[in-house]
C-alpha cells in the first residue's frame, strides 16, 4: 500500500545535513550512507551516494528520474551468478 501523502516522503534526517555539507564543500566525494530506507529527494540530484548493501558502499549517482525511489533500490543486496547448467550436463 502506498504511503499517506500527508506524512510526506520518509527521509532519515541526518541525510539532509550530510547532503548540504557535501554541497557546501563543493567537492564531488561519495557520501556514505546506511539509510537504504530513505526516499530520494529532489535536493539530492547530482550528488553521489555510497549506499551500503551489507557488504560495501555501492556508488549511486542520483539523477532526476530517481526522485521518489528509495536508496536501497539502487544497491542490490544479493548476488546471483546463475546456475551452472553446463557442468551438470557433462557430469550426467
Amino acid at each position: 500500500m502506498a504511503r499517506s501523502v500527508w506524512k510526506g516522503p520518509f527521509v532519515d534526517g541526518y541525510l539532509l545535513n550530510k547532503a548540504e555539507a557535501s554541497r557546501a564543500s563543493s567537492r564531488n566525494e561519495i557520501i556514505k550512507i546506511w539509510s537504504r530506507r530513505s526516499t530520494i529527494l529532489p535536493q539530492f540530484v547530482g550528488l553521489t551516494f555510497g549506499v551500503y548493501n551489507g557488504h560495501k558502499f555501492l556508488p549511486v549517482q542520483v539523477t532526476e528520474n530517481m526522485v521518489g525511489h528509495k536508496f536501497g533500490e539502487f544497491s542490490p543486496t544479493r548476488t546471483f551468478t546463475g546456475h551452472s547448467a553446463d557442468k551438470k550436463a557433462k557430469r550426467g
Binding site: 539523477t63 528520474n65 530517481m66 525511489h69 536501497g72 533500490e73 539502487f74 542490490p76
Partner: peptide, 8 residues
Amino acid sequence: DLGCYRGL
C-alpha cells in the same frame, strides 16, 4: 534504464 531493483 534507472538501474533500480525493479528494473533489474
